[in-house]
Design a protein around this nucleic acid. Structure first.
Lengths: 208, 208
DNA sequence: CGTGAACCTGACCGCGTGGTCAAAGAAAAC
DNA sequence: GTTTTCTTTGACCACGCGGTCAGGTTCACG
């Protein structure tokens, strides 16, 4: 039981369990209802706690929301971070796309939480976007531009290539209701998307 | 001054002006704040009316929201509706994509309003999506499948082709905050996107 | 088992918000 | 000019919601 790092972190068993339950419940409610649409009672109920008890662990509704967003940023950057400048260009880009699609399948609530935030103009995340996200994208875009100029993939604008990966993969999580309604029953949107996107990016990146 | 059509529709000059102003103001506020996040006071202020006066023209906050969504559906279907089965396949699909991108540029608030609704699981629009939208997509997907099978465009899943057009074009409106933050100043996202998407769909659809 | 800290709750509060209403103020109709 | 209908508003209300608090209960630890 060391006490290193960020000041004051007792972290008992109960604290661990309850904060986890609260964040899980908050993710569920915020992603489905938005920040203003969610109520502390809903979150408390979903977490199996009373509202005052919930506020014993977090000082305010906003604090829960911020904590959720803060934790999300790392997960969100990870797939792009893993794009390896030393790898085979096509494999790296397709791999990035597949990881993002996998994230949409496995973490649709997180995707919707993020979408909600950006839709509003990213009031809380703009600093993180302008620093962490931007610099990472700049870095990887330079790598892709290099590949492009070296003729290892077809010429493309690297920024919009990255945007297209975000758009195409997150769409299946954020607009899931619409996708399922249009396809009708008996479809697995994500596996179909996997095949389609493989094809799309293969053709986009193929050299002469 | 005829009185045909839907029962009771006096529509004086003042009524016309005020309902228009209210819907315009509501679009502004709802698209930026979401349904729950928006307040009647904000909408009234943006419309230049008092709150009670606003409620003289619409019975409730929800009624304004519904009216907005109802009016949006037609605009939303129009670009796909215009895809001509008798046209040149590549031109038709690329034309559809360009019309959608144009809509994102010209009507970003409407795009965000729609995104907000679908993110929440489309509680109000699901009926319209399951009927109007789905049948239109089914119809046009069949056309595209025909082109694909006839070898006039490269083989693609027509449904996911349409989804990809939605995702790629709406992304620039819905995630505008992020796109601008990542690109930095001195960029015109939409014109760059136009060039990129031209390239992307050209390569995706090219035969041989 | 005792004691202090951590955990939990019912009751409560103030404020913002959706919505109402009676009555005043403009337009239109005659 | 008068009446009638349409338009606008200030004052008001009920309620849901975020947040507080005093006090009770449970837990960890010696």
């Amino acid at each position: 039981m060391n006490d290193e790092g960020r000041a004051t972190r007792p972290q008992t068993r109960i604290q661990q369990r309850n904060t986890t339950a609260i964040l899980e419940a908050a993710l569920e409610v915020f992603s489905a209802q938005g920040f203003r649409g969610a109520t502390l009672d809903q979150i408390a109920a979903a977490a199996g706690l009373s509202k005052p008890n919930l506020l014993y662990y977090f000082p305010s509704k906003e604090a829960i929301h911020l904590e959720l967003l803060r934790g999300l940023m790392d997960d969100w950057l990870a797939p792009l971070h893993a794009l390896d400048p030393a790898g085979e260009p096509r494999d790296e880009i397709m791999g990035y796309m597949r990881r993002k699609l996998e994230m949409s399948r496995e973490m649709p609530r997180e995707s919707r939480l993020f979408a909600n935030e950006v839709l509003r103009g990213a009031p809380h995340m703009m600093p993180a976007i302008e620093t962490g996200l931007k610099s990472l994208v700049d870095e990887k875009a330079a790598v892709i531009r290099g590949w492009s100029e070296a003729g290892r993939i077809a010429p493309v604008d690297p920024y919009h290539l990255i945007f297209s990966i975000w758009a195409l993969t997150q769409h299946y999580a954020d607009f899931e209701a619409q996708v399922r309604a249009v396809l009708g029953p008996g479809h697995d949107p994500y596996s179909e998307a996997g095949a389609f996107l493989d094809l799309l990016f293969t053709r986009l990146l193929a050299t002469g």
